[in-house]
Design a binder for these strands. Structure first.
Lengths: 245, 245
DNA sequence: GAAATAGTGTCTATTAGACAATATCGT
DNA sequence: ACGATATTGTCTAATAGACACTATTTC
């Protein structure tokens, strides 16, 4: 904490930019590999083109609050419990040629239905983590790529870590979501077992929900308070903190 | 990228703080579980106490450059190839009660010898990731904890990811380093095999380096350009990108 | 050859993926 | 009973840890 003279140094503009992700319903436009989408907006000012929504940090504001402001004021949505994930601080002094601006990039995922009235367009994303069509201004393509990469990484092992399914769900619904995020088909049995330890069965009195179409009704699950799943070796290390040969 | 009026919003001070880590030689002070240490400095100004070194971001400066300035100007070291790792952006508006200051926390590790002439004290760190004795001002204890946590995480699987051994080394030297960082003993065979895939044998014509004391001389290794080690499933996924039942 | 340190063969428990059988519903 | 979907038993390959043996040096 350097504290020489607080007014001596010039200060950068500090912004937050948001990769607002969603999953498109099946059979929407492109193939099943392009169901992951991001909300982009058109800029009409000086540099014209597509951007991720963002804004400046207000006085004495937390980053998370600024992201919430973006969702409310720029995307025009009234979503209470947003849970943005910090991605990276983009600090290249030349990233915005108009002024020295650093940006804390975030990623947030919301259900498709919640984005119905959103201000902006939902653009599908390819397997390479870039827009299927077009590109973004500034370094926003890099932000998007990072967002997709991190999102996919987390959806590999955990059930819906970004909360796109907020209530309860069947394993089939969960798997469909994960397939859409990852852009690839997943094996049913492997997927079920991988997720099982992070889910709790929530079916009551044999009550179950299933889509019409027939077939055995699926159990309904809910995400469980994950205690940070431990591998064999990690478990051992906690039991025998430091024994050695 | 919001760009309404660049001068309309008040801007925070932007700082970088650095957890400068090292590993103390064996038999220095405390037990083998407290060989990991961090450089702290004493502040005499307004809030008096121990802090991690830090400074403000200069105009149009990269974060990494600011960290390099901290090493040069605050820690008074002339180390050319520093490779700091970003930890987190600390953004609590009240983290510094004097002024609105956000701080990009970084961690950097340097060999003990390089810190001989450093400005500041090397304080040992406990298994809990906190100073064995005392505490730091502001949120610097949290920065330190995060630095230790992330450092240990990386030293679990990769050989010296923070470059504390810069040239070549034996597996015994590498293991001693990892034991010091992790604060726990490691099995020789398991450790060797875990590291093997990330190392390349660099012994020439039977030339080898070993400390005196007898015993079979050890091979000398060097870190290899890691191609990001792939597990079984990851390998499969790259070969058959998206086949499914 | 004894002591000391280095490196490896191999056994075993755990895990992850794959196939296939069984279970439960609507009609 | 049949079609459809869900769930689970089980085989197998791969991995990680542990034990113990072999190897190479100095004295």
């Amino acid at each position: 904490m350097p504290l020489d003279d607080l007014t001596r140094y010039p200060r950068p503009n500090v912004a937050v930019d948001l990769a607002l992700m969603t999953v498109l319903p099946p059979f929407t436009g492109r193939g099943p590999e392009e169901r992951l989408a991001v909300l982009v907006q058109h800029r009409y000012d000086d540099p014209t083109g597509l951007v991720l929504p963002g804004r400046f940090l207000r006085e004495r504001q937390h980053l998370v609050e600024a992201v919430e402001d973006v969702v409310r004021e720029k995307v025009k949505l009234d979503i209470p419990a947003a849970a943005p994930h910090f991605l990276k601080l983009f600090d290249d002094p030349d990233r915005d040629r108009r002024a020295w601006t650093i940006s804390a990039a975030h990623v947030l995922a919301l259900p498709y239905d919640a984005l119905r009235n959103a201000d902006g367009d939902l653009r599908p994303i390819g397997l390479d983590g870039r827009l299927v069509k077009g590109s973004l201004l500034f370094d926003h393509d890099a932000i998007l790529r990072l967002a997709v990469e991190q999102m996919r990484e987390r959806y590999e092992r955990r059930p819906d870590p970004y909360g796109l399914l907020d209530g309860s769900f069947t394993l089939a619904e969960l798997r469909d979501l994960h397939e859409a995020v990852l852009g690839e088909r997943l094996r049913k049995d492997t997927f079920n077992r991988r997720m099982a330890e992070h889910l709790s069965d929530v079916t009551r009195h044999g009550q179950s929900l299933t889509r019409s179409g027939g077939g055995r009704p699926a159990k309904v699950y809910r995400k469980r308070r994950s205690q940070g799943h431990l591998s064999q070796s990690e478990r051992r290390r906690l039991q025998l903190p430091r024994s050695a040969p």
